[in-house]
Amino acid sequence: MIGLYIVTGVALVISFAFDRKKTWAGLKKGWMKFYKTLPSYLFLLMLISFILLLSEDFIIENLGQENIFLGLLFSLGIGSVTMMPGFIAYPLSRILLARGVPYMIIAAFVTSLMLVGVVTYPLEKSYMGKKATILRNIMSFLVAAGISLIAGLFYGELV
């Protein structure tokens, strides 16, 4: 985080030294982009705060399915529709592991959590367009499934 501020500061100083006008144009462009998507960001944060509250207990109760493929689909689904920061997701995964949930299911949950963003749809749409957003999320869902299956193979949970 501090690195980001240092990089930004240095970049600004260098940019100003080379070309004042261009730098102002750049700042204006950055501001325009930010301003245009701010409402989407706010809406998103609100939604996530709400979902996060409902999802934690639900996940602990439901991820340990008897049938491993059912569990896989279920965790991919939950991972796709929820969103939570790492410092909540990883300890949660650890609790699940301790309860005997297979690594494959955890991989599915963690990967789809990061890759597939149903709640981030409005934000992604404003930058990538509707079609690219939908297709990228479908692709990511399949990628998450593939990664989990490989993790399952490595941990000997599949065969």
Binding site: L4, Y5, S15, G26, L27, K29, G30, W31, K33
Partner: peptide, 16 residues
Amino acid sequence: LILPPAFILIGLFDVW
């Protein structure tokens, strides 16, 4: 914390 510097960098990237 993250968005303001990130968008400054994106803006600078755009012009440079």
